[in-house]
Design a protein around this nucleic acid. Structure first.
Lengths: 131, 131, 131, 131
DNA sequence: GTGGTCTAGACCACC
DNA sequence: GTGGTCTAGACCACG
């Protein structure tokens, strides 16, 4: 799993990290009992300050998605999978709804919109991310 | 045309307003020479501080989309339509790309994704926005 | 004597252990010349890392409450009883003062406070601790 | 109302501030709709870093005790009083229980303990705080 | 003025 | 090594 942060995105860096962890759990790339990346390791990988990672984990902790064992690490909880799967579905569907609604409000006609979507769905999109 | 602001959206209030103006121009709901709503009127309608509206207009002015005639009002420029249409297409396509890419990263499989999109495209979505 | 650690208490684990040893000496459950539990034994009993126990003993040694005889064990010193008795009285009285003062600052009225204390003093409280 | 922080207490500074706010609400010194001290003002009064205050308020916010209106201030919610009253009673009673239980474990006999408590309850304790 | 976020770096305690 | 907290200071956006 790769984690990264787009520094200039509208989504705050700590939110981006929290989201990526939730996705990884919903994906079963991280499972119950797994240790999530250490604060310092993730900070180094994502090129952010350790405090930013700590904030993301703090958020995930009170969502009962991870559990901190000081001096040991931070671990995926037993309920995390369900929480993250639901969160992911709600998130994605709401993002799609927002984008489609915005397109409509912007006056994009249905034909053009469908053709754009078809094209975007076919895009390879590679293994990484695009800005 | 209705303008409104979602106070808790990730998009800043002044950005929401600027975007809605750009869409209105791309839609030809506002045309070259039209007077845009006054700062106070728009502030009242969107329930935001006049400073927030002023900031949106400052941005649009800087983009040569509107032109301020002190003591008279703020008007749509001659080049506005082209600028806004291009901005709109870029914006919508990038928002769609972002949403679809996020869905992919979230591990939503293609079938589920297509079915979601079909369903969302059929939604009535009313005439305005739903809060 | 039983030793244990509440992992989520505000008092650090090593402090909890040191305190329990001091209490045991003040109680004369441990006396001059007695061998205190070995680092490993205490670590196993209290379910903590041996380093944590070692730290507690280092502290007690520095306070001249115990004395390490390398290759033999760790022993209660001759002055330990007096030191621990004084420490205990200061500690308990200061903890009580703190709790009562906090109650006052919290706006608990004197009647309610007295009634709580009466009730708590009557509680059986068992022989050990309740987790 | 005065707020202050004991820098060397076991309770973290941000926790001390959060507690004092909860007490003030339980006491009805702060009521529904009241604006709590601004981050910067409270930081100045309590001689801590603004981030520390912000952390305390963040905590209170997700306990639904206060509500943040960015650019305006932070306000006591409608449910805050009940939440804080319950929190206060639980907190005080548990602190008292802890102190009394520790006294028992420390081997303080009941007579001595009662006499200490009587004495402490009579202490004036002034208007401020004691370290 | 308000709160919110991030960066940077220090200190502490536990493993 | 681990997480947790605090300090300090910068930047952003809204009122």
């Amino acid at each position: 799993m790769k984690y990264w942060v787009e520094p200039h995105a509208t989504e705050a860096p700590s939110e981006q990290l929290a989201r990526q962890i939730r996705f990884a759990i919903a994906n079963e790339q991280l499972r119950f009992g797994d240790r999530v990346p250490s604060v310092r390791a993730l900070a180094a990988e994502a090129l952010v300050n350790p405090n930013t990672v700590a904030k993301a984990y703090r958020q995930l902790e009170w969502e009962k998605i991870v559990e901190s064992k000081p001096g040991d690490g931070i671990f995926v909880t037993s309920g995390a999978f369900e929480i993250c799967k639901q969160w992911r579905d709600g998130r994605i569907s709401s993002e799609l709804r927002r984008a489609l609604n915005e397109a409509r409000l912007a006056g994009i006609d249905a034909t053009k919109l469908s053709s754009w979507i078809q094209q975007l769905l076919k895009e390879p999109q590679g293994a990484g991310h695009e800005k």
